[in-house]
Write a protein that binds this DNA or RNA. Structure first.
Length: 589
RNA sequence: GCCCCUGUAGCUCAGUGGAUAGAGCAACCGCCUUCUAAGCGGCAGGCCGAGGGUUCGAGUCCCCCCAGGGGCGCCA
C-alpha cells in the first residue's frame, strides 16, 4: 500500500479559509494515528508500538464511506484485542474536522470515514478556481525531473514499438509536471555507429539509382522504401551534384530527413521533446573515457580475452588470435557476469557511453530521472546502475520503466518487424488508420508490464466503439451544455450547491480521487492508471448527464444554476485528464 | 539450461494483503419530440492456469508445476 505518512506536509486541505482540493488520505492517516494515541492515553487501547504508517484506502464499499482503514485488523495481534473493538476505540477517539462527516467502525474491523457533503460540494468551487491546473500537487515543487524516451536511432521511421515508449514517457512527463516538477523530455540518439554508416551508404545507393545508375544496395543495407523517397528529394534539390560525395554526406542527409520525420510523427501524437542528446558528444568531451578511468581507478576494470571465471567451453569458443577486451567487473556489484565495455577492436560497447550519459544526467542536477526502455534492455539498465554505483554516484534518482513488447496482428497473423528489412508498421500508418487519440489511449490503457497485442483489424473496426470517445464525449457534452446555456442566458452565478442530488454528489466524490490517482501513477511508474480512472469517471458521468438535466422544463432555475456549476467543474476535470494523457479534449464530436 | 514478464468474463485488459473480483468490446432485451444516442436502462457471463504453503484475511506474498512472450552477444 502507498505510504502516505510524512510525505505531504505541505499539502493542505484548507488555505486562508478557502477550501482546497488536495490529497486527502495523508490527512486521514494522521488523524487515525492521533486517534490511536488518544485511545491509548485514555486507557481504551493497551500500549503497543504505533504502526509505521496507518493505511488508508478508498473504500471498497462507497455506501459505508469514502475511505477505509484496515489498521485495526493489523493491530489485533499487538493489542491482543478483537479487531472490531480496536476499530471502535479508534473511531471513538478520532477528531472530527469539518471536512469529515463521520468515522465509524464496521465488521470485521474496518474503520470507515465519510467526507462531509458540504465539503465535497464546495470542492466544485475549488476545482473551478484552480482551473486548468486543477489537482496540481507540490511534491515536485522546486525540483527538476527528466524523462528520456523513444531514443530511437535515426535509421528509419518510428514503429509502434517506439510509439509505446514515447507514450509512456510523455505521459509520465505530463504527470511529473502536474506534481510540480520542472520537467525536461529528452531524446538520446547515436548518429555515429555502424548502423548509421550503413544508412548513409544505403541512401547513397538509392540516390545513384535515382540518377539512373545501376548501383546495388550495400550488404545488410536498409531496404525500406522510405530511403527511395529521400533520394528522390535529394535529386530534386541537388540534381546530380552529389554523385561524387562520400557516404558521410548521405549519412548526414539521411539523418536530417529521419529526424524531420521522427519529430513530425511524434508531434502528431502530442510528443514534443525539449532536448536531443547526441551520444557522440560524450566522446567529443571525453566523458566516456573519463568514466572508464574512474572505473579503473576503483578497480572495476580488467583486460582479458574472456571474462574472469569463464568456463573452458567459453574459452574454447574464442578464436586463437583473439585480442583483449576491457571488462567491467560488475559481478563485484551483484551481477551474474562481467560485461564488456570496450571491444577488442577498441570500440566501446553501448554500455560505456550509456553510463557516461547517465553520469551527465546526474551532473545536470536532476532530482528525478525516468528512462523508458523495452524489456530487452533490462541487462543494459542494470549495467548502467552498477556502473554509476561503481564510480560513486547514487543511482536511486534513476527510475526505469520497462515495458513489454508490442506485437502487431493483422489478418490473424503476427507481423514481425525489422527496420533493416523495411518491414514494419509505422506509427504514422497507425495514426492515419485510427487517429492520434485512439493510438494514445489504446497504448496508454495497458500496464507497461503487459504484452501489448495490437490487432490492426480490430483497431480499425472498433475505431468508433472505443473508450476514447466515451471519455471525450463527457467533455463534449459539458461543452454542449454551456453552448446551450449561453444561448438561453442561463448562468451558474451564485449557485447554491446544496441543491445538488445524490448522483452529482457521487460524481464529485469520484472526481476528488484524481490527486490520489496522479500520485499513484507517479509512485508506481504506472501511467495506465490515468487511463482507467478517466474511464471510470466517464462511467459515472454519462448516466448522470442523462438524468441530471440543466435546461429542461421542470428544472427550477436555482437547481439549474447549481447543476451548471457542477458541470463546469466536470468539464475542467475531464479536460485535465485528457490533457495529461496527451489527448485532445474536443468541444464537439 | 538460467533469468524476467504474463496467465482473471467469449475477446482485450484493470485490480495497494482487506469487505460480495471489475471495466471496455462482443451477445441478448428495451429506450431518440430531450443540453448531439459516440448515449441510457436491463440481462447475462468467473474453480482469478493447476497444486501446495504463509496470514485473522491471498487474484495479490512464498514454493512447485503447466502454458505463452521476451532476455541470456566483444548487437544496438
Amino acid at each position: 500500500m502507498l505510504q502516505w505518512r510524512g510525505v505531504f506536509a505541505s499539502n493542505r486541505l484548507f488555505c486562508r479559509g478557502v477550501l482546497f482540493v488536495n490529497l486527502i488520505p495523508p490527512h486521514l492517516a494522521t488523524l487515525l494515528r492521533d486517534a490511536i494515541q488518544r485511545a491509548q492515553a485514555a486507557g481504551d487501547l493497551p500500549e503497543f508500538d504505533l504502526p509505521e504508517s496507518v493505511p488508508v484506502q478508498r473504500s471498497g464499499k462507497p455506501e459505508l464511506g469514502d475511505f477505509a482503514s484496515p489498521v485495526a485488523m493489523q493491530l489485533a495481534k499487538a493489542a491482543r484485542r478483537k479487531p472490531l473493538d480496536i476499530a471502535q476505540a479508534i473511531a471513538r477517539h478520532a477528531a472530527a474536522p469539518d471536512y469529515i462527516d463521520r468515522v465509524e467502525a464496521a465488521p470485521p474491523g474496518f474503520i470507515n470515514i465519510r467526507l462531509s457533503d458540504a465539503w465535497v460540494l464546495n470542492q466544485i468551487e475549488a476545482i473551478i478556481a484552480a482551473g486548468e491546473d486543477v489537482f496540481a500537487l507540490d511534491i515536485g515543487r522546486g525540483k527538476t525531473a527528466q524523462v528520456e524516451c523513444v531514443s530511437a536511432n535515426p535509421t528509419g521511421p518510428l514503429t509502434v514499438g517506439h510509439t509505446r515508449n514515447g507514450i509512456i514517457g510523455s505521459t509520465m512527463a505530463n504527470l511529473l509536471r502536474a506534481l510540480g516538477y520542472d520537467v525536461q523530455l529528452e531524446y538520446y540518439f547515436n548518429n555515429a555507429g555502424r548502423q548509421m554508416r550503413v544508412l548513409g551508404q544505403s541512401l547513397q545507393a538509392r540516390y545513384l539509382q535515382a540518377l539512373g545508375r545501376d548501383v546495388p544496395l550495400p550488404e545488410d543495407g536498409y531496404q525500406g522504401e522510405y530511403l527511395v523517397s529521400v533520394a528522390r528529394q535529394l535529386v530534386t534539390d541537388h540534381g546530380d551534384a552529389l554523385q561524387d560525395e562520400p557516404w558521410e554526406r548521405f549519412k548526414d542527409e539521411a539523418e536530417k530527413a529521419m529526424f524531420v520525420w521522427i519529430e513530425r510523427s511524434l508531434g502528431r501524437i502530442n510528443i514534443r521533446f525539449d532536448t536531443f542528446f547526441n551520444e557522440n558528444s560524450l566522446y567529443e568531451n571525453g566523458s566516456v573515457w573519463r568514466v572508464l578511468d574512474q572505473l579503473e581507478e576503483r578497480g572495476y576494470i580488467y583486460r582479458a580475452i574472456v571474462r574472469e571465471g569463464a568456463s573452458e567451453e567459453e574459452r574454447a569458443k574464442m578464436p586463437p588470435d583473439a585480442k583483449e577486451a576491457v571488462w567491467f567487473r560488475s559481478t563485484a556489484l551483484g551481477d551474474e557476469e562481467d560485461r564488456v565495455l570496450v571491444k577488442s577492436s577498441g570500440e566501446p560497447t553501448y554500455a560505456l557511453p550509456d553510463i557516461a550519459y547517465h553520469v551527465d544526467k546526474l551532473e545536470r542536477g536532476f532530482d528525478y530521472l525516468i528512462n523508458v526502455l523495452g524489456t530487452d534492455h533490462i541487462i543494459e539498465a542494470q549495467t548502467v546502475a552498477r556502473g554509476l554505483q561503481a564510480i560513486g554516484y547514487d543511482p536511486t534518482p534513476v527510475h526505469v520503466v520497462l515495458y513489454q513488447f508490442v506485437t502487431l496482428v493483422e489478418g490473424g497473423e503476427q507481423r514481425k518487424m525489422s527496420t533493416r528489412r523495411g518491414e514494419f508498421v509505422t506509427q504514422d500508418e497507425l495514426v492515419d488508420d485510427v487517429g492520434a487519440d485512439v493510438v494514445r489511449y489504446f497504448i496508454l490503457a495497458r500496464s507497461p508490464n503487459s504484452h501489448l497485442e495490437f490487432d490492426l483489424d480490430l483497431a480499425r473496426q472498433h475505431a468508433n466503439e472505443n473508450p476514447v470517445y466515451y471519455i471525450q464525449n463527457a467533455h463534449v457534452r459539458c461543452a454542449g451544455i454551456f453552448r446551450q446555456a449561453a444561448e438561453r442566458g442561463v448562468t451558474d452565478d451564485g449557485a447554491d450547491l446544496s441543491l445538488l442530488g445524490e448522483r452529482e454528489r457521487a460524481f464529485v466524490r469520484k472526481m476528488l480521487e484524481t490527486p490520489e490517482v496522479l500520485l499513484q501513477a507517479y509512485d508506481e511508474l504506472a501511467p495506465h492508471k490515468l487511463a482507467f480512472y478517466a474511464l471510470e469517471l466517464a462511467r459515472l458521468f454519462h448516466p448522470m448527464y442523462d438524468e441530471v438535466r440543466v435546461m429542461h422544463g421542470d428544472v427550477p432555475e436555482d437547481v439549474a444554476r447549481a447543476r451548471l456549476r457542477m458541470y463546469r467543474a466536470a468539464q475542467i476535470v475531464f479536460r485535465r485528464l485528457l490533457t495529461l494523457m496527451g489527448m485532445s479534449a474536443p468541444e464537439v464530436m
